[in-house]
Protein backbone atom coordinates (compact mmCIF):
# COMPACT_ATOMS: atom_id res chain seq x y z
CA UNK A 1 0.00 0.00 0.00
CA UNK A 2 1.25 3.44 -0.89
CA UNK A 3 0.84 6.51 1.29
CA UNK A 4 -2.69 7.92 1.25
CA UNK A 5 -3.35 10.99 -0.86
CA UNK A 6 -6.25 12.06 1.29
CA UNK A 7 -7.08 11.01 4.80
CA UNK A 8 -9.83 11.97 7.21
CA UNK A 9 -9.23 11.30 10.88
CA UNK A 10 -12.15 11.58 13.27
CA UNK A 11 -13.79 14.38 11.31
CA UNK A 12 -16.93 15.83 12.88
CA UNK A 13 -19.06 18.77 11.87
CA UNK A 14 -21.91 20.27 13.84
CA UNK A 15 -24.12 22.88 12.22
CA UNK A 16 -26.23 25.28 14.26
CA UNK A 17 -29.43 25.82 12.39
CA UNK A 18 -31.12 29.09 13.30
CA UNK A 19 -34.68 29.14 12.10
CA UNK A 20 -36.54 32.48 11.81
CA UNK A 21 -38.76 31.32 14.65
CA UNK A 22 -37.94 28.88 17.40
CA UNK A 23 -34.81 27.67 19.08
CA UNK A 24 -31.39 27.01 17.57
CA UNK A 25 -31.05 23.39 16.59
CA UNK A 26 -27.79 21.42 16.53
CA UNK A 27 -27.30 19.13 13.55
CA UNK A 28 -24.47 16.67 13.80
CA UNK A 29 -23.83 16.27 10.08
CA UNK A 30 -20.59 14.32 10.49
CA UNK A 31 -19.58 12.24 13.50
CA UNK A 32 -16.06 10.95 13.81
CA UNK A 33 -15.56 10.09 10.15
CA UNK A 34 -12.32 8.29 9.27
CA UNK A 35 -11.13 6.99 5.91
CA UNK A 36 -8.33 7.45 3.39
CA UNK A 37 -7.82 7.31 -0.37
CA UNK A 38 -4.64 6.40 -2.23
CA UNK A 39 -3.60 7.85 -5.62
CA UNK A 40 -5.31 6.16 -8.56
CA UNK A 41 -7.99 4.59 -6.39
CA UNK A 42 -11.60 5.39 -5.70
CA UNK A 43 -13.55 5.36 -2.48
CA UNK A 44 -17.33 5.38 -2.72
CA UNK A 45 -19.40 7.00 -0.01
CA UNK A 46 -22.86 5.45 -0.15
CA UNK A 47 -25.93 6.14 1.93
CA UNK A 48 -29.38 7.66 1.81
CA UNK A 49 -30.06 11.38 1.51
CA UNK A 50 -29.11 13.22 4.66
CA UNK A 51 -26.57 10.62 5.71
CA UNK A 52 -23.72 13.14 5.52
CA UNK A 53 -21.99 11.89 2.39
CA UNK A 54 -22.17 15.20 0.53
CA UNK A 55 -21.16 17.10 3.67
CA UNK A 56 -18.08 14.92 3.74
CA UNK A 57 -17.27 15.88 0.15
CA UNK A 58 -17.76 19.54 0.92
CA UNK A 59 -15.38 19.33 3.88
CA UNK A 60 -12.74 17.81 1.59
CA UNK A 61 -13.00 20.67 -0.91
CA UNK A 62 -12.61 23.00 2.09
CA UNK A 63 -16.07 24.43 1.91
CA UNK A 64 -16.00 24.64 5.71
CA UNK A 65 -13.71 23.69 8.55
CA UNK A 66 -14.65 20.59 10.56
CA UNK A 67 -15.64 21.08 14.21
CA UNK A 68 -13.19 18.33 15.17
CA UNK A 69 -10.71 15.99 13.53
CA UNK A 70 -8.20 16.54 10.75
CA UNK A 71 -8.23 16.22 6.99
CA UNK A 72 -4.80 15.56 5.49
CA UNK A 73 -3.76 15.85 1.89
CA UNK A 74 -0.38 14.22 1.12
CA UNK A 75 0.10 14.05 4.87
CA UNK A 76 -0.47 17.74 5.56
CA UNK A 77 -3.39 19.21 7.46
CA UNK A 78 -5.38 21.17 4.90
CA UNK A 79 -6.50 23.76 7.44
CA UNK A 80 -3.20 24.29 9.31
CA UNK A 81 -0.62 26.94 8.42
CA UNK A 82 -2.44 28.12 5.33
CA UNK A 83 -0.49 30.21 2.84
CA UNK A 84 -1.75 31.74 -0.33
CA UNK A 85 0.48 29.49 -2.38
CA UNK A 86 -0.50 26.38 -0.50
CA UNK A 87 -4.14 27.30 -0.89
CA UNK A 88 -3.89 27.65 -4.61
CA UNK A 89 -2.00 24.37 -4.91
CA UNK A 90 -4.65 22.56 -2.87
CA UNK A 91 -7.56 24.07 -4.75
CA UNK A 92 -5.87 23.02 -7.98
CA UNK A 93 -5.18 19.46 -6.89
CA UNK A 94 -8.64 18.81 -5.48
CA UNK A 95 -11.51 19.36 -7.89
CA UNK A 96 -15.22 18.79 -7.64
CA UNK A 97 -17.71 17.47 -10.19
CA UNK A 98 -21.33 18.13 -9.30
CA UNK A 99 -24.56 16.25 -9.82
CA UNK A 100 -26.31 18.71 -12.09
CA UNK A 101 -24.37 19.39 -15.30
CA UNK A 102 -26.99 22.03 -16.22
CA UNK A 103 -26.23 24.11 -13.17
CA UNK A 104 -22.46 23.66 -12.98
CA UNK A 105 -21.60 25.18 -16.38
CA UNK A 106 -22.23 28.83 -17.20
CA UNK A 107 -24.96 28.97 -19.86
CA UNK A 108 -23.65 32.23 -21.36
CA UNK A 109 -20.15 30.94 -22.13
CA UNK A 110 -18.78 28.50 -24.67
CA UNK A 111 -16.97 25.30 -23.75
CA UNK A 112 -13.78 27.01 -24.95
CA UNK A 113 -14.23 29.70 -22.30
CA UNK A 114 -14.88 27.11 -19.58
CA UNK A 115 -11.63 25.30 -20.28
CA UNK A 116 -9.39 28.18 -21.41
CA UNK A 117 -9.59 30.00 -18.10
CA UNK A 118 -8.38 27.17 -15.88
CA UNK A 119 -5.72 26.21 -18.44
CA UNK A 120 -4.44 29.79 -18.56
CA UNK A 121 -4.52 30.33 -14.81
CA UNK A 122 -2.66 27.17 -14.01
CA UNK A 123 -0.38 26.75 -17.02
CA UNK A 124 0.11 30.05 -18.80
CA UNK A 125 -0.63 30.73 -22.45
CA UNK A 126 1.97 28.48 -24.14
CA UNK A 127 0.39 25.99 -26.56
CA UNK A 128 -2.99 26.97 -25.20
CA UNK A 129 -4.88 25.77 -28.26
CA UNK A 130 -3.11 22.41 -28.31
CA UNK A 131 -3.67 21.86 -24.57
CA UNK A 132 -7.28 22.83 -24.97
CA UNK A 133 -7.83 20.26 -27.69
CA UNK A 134 -5.94 17.59 -25.77
CA UNK A 135 -8.04 18.16 -22.65
CA UNK A 136 -11.22 17.61 -24.62
CA UNK A 137 -9.91 14.50 -26.35
CA UNK A 138 -8.94 13.15 -22.94
CA UNK A 139 -12.60 13.08 -21.96
CA UNK A 140 -13.60 11.60 -25.33
CA UNK A 141 -15.14 14.76 -26.77
CA UNK A 142 -14.38 15.95 -30.31
CA UNK A 143 -12.57 19.33 -30.06
CA UNK A 144 -13.67 20.40 -33.55
CA UNK A 145 -17.36 20.17 -32.83
CA UNK A 146 -17.39 20.91 -29.10
CA UNK A 147 -15.13 23.90 -28.47
CA UNK A 148 -17.38 26.66 -29.77
CA UNK A 149 -20.61 25.21 -28.42
CA UNK A 150 -22.61 26.51 -25.49
CA UNK A 151 -23.62 24.16 -22.66
CA UNK A 152 -27.26 23.96 -23.83
CA UNK A 153 -26.10 22.53 -27.15
CA UNK A 154 -24.60 19.49 -25.44
CA UNK A 155 -26.31 16.45 -23.93
CA UNK A 156 -26.16 15.81 -20.18
CA UNK A 157 -23.45 13.20 -20.65
CA UNK A 158 -21.34 15.53 -22.78
CA UNK A 159 -21.75 18.32 -20.25
CA UNK A 160 -20.61 16.03 -17.48
CA UNK A 161 -17.54 15.22 -19.59
CA UNK A 162 -16.81 18.96 -19.82
CA UNK A 163 -16.95 19.10 -16.01
CA UNK A 164 -14.32 16.35 -15.85
CA UNK A 165 -12.27 18.15 -18.53
CA UNK A 166 -12.31 21.28 -16.38
CA UNK A 167 -10.90 19.28 -13.48
CA UNK A 168 -8.23 17.75 -15.74
CA UNK A 169 -7.32 21.17 -17.14
CA UNK A 170 -5.87 22.26 -13.81
CA UNK A 171 -4.16 18.94 -13.19
CA UNK A 172 -6.48 17.52 -10.55
CA UNK A 173 -5.07 14.71 -8.41
CA UNK A 174 -8.27 14.07 -6.47
CA UNK A 175 -11.75 14.51 -7.90
CA UNK A 176 -14.69 14.70 -5.54
CA UNK A 177 -17.59 13.47 -7.69
CA UNK A 178 -20.97 14.05 -6.05
CA UNK A 179 -23.58 11.89 -7.81
CA UNK A 180 -22.06 12.66 -11.23
CA UNK A 181 -24.32 10.22 -13.08
CA UNK A 182 -27.61 10.38 -11.23
CA UNK A 183 -29.12 12.99 -13.55
CA UNK A 184 -28.01 11.21 -16.70
CA UNK A 185 -29.98 8.75 -18.78
CA UNK A 186 -29.40 5.09 -18.05
CA UNK A 187 -27.78 4.35 -21.40
CA UNK A 188 -25.05 7.00 -21.03
CA UNK A 189 -24.42 6.57 -17.32
CA UNK A 190 -22.04 3.73 -17.84
CA UNK A 191 -19.92 5.59 -20.40
CA UNK A 192 -19.33 8.38 -17.87
CA UNK A 193 -18.42 5.79 -15.23
CA UNK A 194 -16.03 4.20 -17.73
CA UNK A 195 -14.41 7.59 -18.27
CA UNK A 196 -13.87 7.93 -14.52
CA UNK A 197 -12.37 4.48 -14.43
CA UNK A 198 -9.98 5.33 -17.25
CA UNK A 199 -8.86 8.58 -15.59
CA UNK A 200 -8.22 6.62 -12.45
CA UNK A 201 -6.22 3.88 -14.12
CA UNK A 202 -4.32 5.87 -16.74
CA UNK A 203 -3.67 9.10 -14.88
CA UNK A 204 -3.67 7.90 -11.29
CA UNK A 205 -6.38 10.34 -10.34
CA UNK A 206 -8.03 9.49 -7.04
CA UNK A 207 -11.81 9.72 -6.67
CA UNK A 208 -14.08 10.36 -3.75
CA UNK A 209 -17.26 9.06 -5.36
CA UNK A 210 -20.44 10.09 -3.57
CA UNK A 211 -23.53 8.17 -4.59
CA UNK A 212 -26.75 6.52 -3.53
CA UNK A 213 -26.46 4.07 -6.41
CA UNK A 214 -24.68 1.13 -4.87
CA UNK A 215 -24.30 -0.83 -8.11
CA UNK A 216 -22.22 2.00 -9.62
CA UNK A 217 -20.09 2.17 -6.46
CA UNK A 218 -19.30 -1.47 -6.94
CA UNK A 219 -18.51 -0.78 -10.58
CA UNK A 220 -15.86 1.90 -10.10
CA UNK A 221 -14.64 2.03 -6.52
CA UNK A 222 -12.07 -0.23 -4.88
CA UNK A 223 -13.34 0.73 -1.46
CA UNK A 224 -16.81 1.58 -0.19
CA UNK A 225 -17.91 3.30 3.00
CA UNK A 226 -21.55 3.10 4.08
CA UNK A 227 -22.76 6.22 5.89
CA UNK A 228 -25.82 6.80 8.01
CA UNK A 229 -26.72 9.75 10.25
CA UNK A 230 -23.28 11.28 9.82
CA UNK A 231 -21.36 8.14 10.80
CA UNK A 232 -19.52 5.51 8.79
CA UNK A 233 -21.23 2.20 9.59
CA UNK A 234 -18.94 -0.02 7.59
CA UNK A 235 -16.01 0.42 5.25
CA UNK A 236 -13.73 -1.88 3.31
CA UNK A 237 -13.11 -3.41 -0.12
CA UNK A 238 -16.21 -2.74 -2.25
CA UNK A 239 -16.71 -6.35 -3.12
CA UNK A 240 -16.75 -7.43 0.53
CA UNK A 241 -18.90 -4.54 1.77
CA UNK A 242 -21.47 -4.81 -1.03
CA UNK A 243 -21.70 -8.55 -1.55
CA UNK A 244 -21.21 -9.53 2.04
CA UNK A 245 -22.27 -6.61 4.25
CA UNK A 246 -21.77 -7.20 7.98
CA UNK A 247 -23.40 -4.23 9.68
CA UNK A 248 -27.20 -4.41 10.07
CA UNK A 249 -27.63 -1.05 8.37
CA UNK A 250 -25.45 -1.91 5.37
CA UNK A 251 -27.40 -5.15 5.05
CA UNK A 252 -30.67 -3.23 4.99
CA UNK A 253 -29.41 -0.68 2.47
CA UNK A 254 -27.96 -3.26 0.13
CA UNK A 255 -30.96 -5.57 0.36
CA UNK A 256 -33.08 -2.71 -1.00
CA UNK A 257 -31.01 -2.25 -4.17
CA UNK A 258 -33.25 -3.22 -7.09
CA UNK A 259 -32.52 -6.75 -8.22
CA UNK A 260 -34.45 -8.00 -11.25
CA UNK A 261 -34.11 -11.58 -10.03
CA UNK A 262 -36.19 -10.97 -6.90
CA UNK A 263 -39.91 -10.23 -7.30
CA UNK A 264 -41.80 -8.06 -4.84
CA UNK A 265 -44.98 -10.15 -4.94
CA UNK A 266 -43.09 -13.04 -3.41
CA UNK A 267 -42.40 -10.89 -0.38
CA UNK A 268 -45.54 -8.77 -0.36
CA UNK A 269 -47.00 -10.51 2.67
CA UNK A 270 -44.36 -9.11 4.93
CA UNK A 271 -44.36 -5.60 3.47
CA UNK A 272 -45.10 -4.11 6.86
CA UNK A 273 -42.58 -6.39 8.52
CA UNK A 274 -39.88 -4.98 6.23
CA UNK A 275 -40.89 -1.42 7.14
CA UNK A 276 -40.82 -2.19 10.86
CA UNK A 277 -37.47 -3.89 10.60
CA UNK A 278 -36.10 -0.96 8.56
CA UNK A 279 -37.25 1.50 11.24
CA UNK A 280 -35.63 -0.56 13.99
CA UNK A 281 -32.32 -0.85 12.14
CA UNK A 282 -32.28 2.89 11.44
CA UNK A 283 -32.99 3.78 15.07
CA UNK A 284 -30.16 1.49 16.14
CA UNK A 285 -27.72 2.84 13.57
CA UNK A 286 -28.38 6.47 14.56
CA UNK A 287 -26.85 5.90 18.02
CA UNK A 288 -23.23 6.96 18.56
CA UNK A 289 -20.64 4.46 17.43
CA UNK A 290 -18.29 3.17 20.13
CA UNK A 291 -15.63 1.82 17.79
CA UNK A 292 -14.83 -0.38 14.83
CA UNK A 293 -13.94 -4.04 14.54
CA UNK A 294 -11.59 -5.06 11.74
CA UNK A 295 -13.19 -8.29 10.62
CA UNK A 296 -10.88 -8.80 7.63
CA UNK A 297 -7.86 -6.80 6.45
CA UNK A 298 -9.16 -3.31 5.70
CA UNK A 299 -12.81 -4.21 6.39
CA UNK A 300 -14.15 -2.24 9.37
CA UNK A 301 -17.58 -2.65 10.95
CA UNK A 302 -18.94 -0.22 13.54
CA UNK A 303 -20.32 -1.26 16.92
CA UNK A 304 -22.19 0.74 19.52
CA UNK A 305 -22.08 0.60 23.34
CA UNK A 306 -25.19 -1.56 23.37
CA UNK A 307 -23.56 -4.17 21.12
CA UNK A 308 -20.71 -4.45 23.58
CA UNK A 309 -22.88 -4.89 26.63
Amino acid sequence: MSAPLLSLEGVSKTFHVRPVLGAVRRVEALRDVTFSIEPGRALALVGESGSGKSTCGRAVIRHFEPSAGTIRFRGEDIFAGRTRRGDSAYLRAVQMVFQDPFASLNPTHTIRHHLERPLRLHGGTDDLEARLRKTLSDVELDPDTTLEKFPHQLSGGQRQRVSFARALAVGAELIVADEPTSMLDVSIRKSVLDLMRRLKEERSIAFLYITHDIATAHYIAEETAVMFAGQVMERGPSDAVIRNPRHAYSKLLISAVPDPARRFDAEADDALAFTRQADAVRADAARPIAGYREIAPGHFVAYSEADNA
Partner: peptide, 13 residues
Protein backbone atom coordinates in the same frame (compact mmCIF):
# COMPACT_ATOMS: atom_id res chain seq x y z
CA UNK B 1 -33.72 2.74 -2.01
CA UNK B 2 -34.90 1.49 1.38
CA UNK B 3 -37.98 3.74 1.36
CA UNK B 4 -38.54 2.87 -2.29
CA UNK B 5 -38.69 -0.80 -1.50
CA UNK B 6 -40.99 -0.20 1.50
CA UNK B 7 -43.48 1.72 -0.64
CA UNK B 8 -43.48 -0.58 -3.66
CA UNK B 9 -43.89 -3.69 -1.51
CA UNK B 10 -46.78 -1.99 0.16
CA UNK B 11 -48.41 -1.27 -3.20
CA UNK B 12 -48.13 -4.93 -4.17
CA UNK B 13 -49.70 -5.95 -0.85
Amino acid sequence: VVVQREILQEIVA
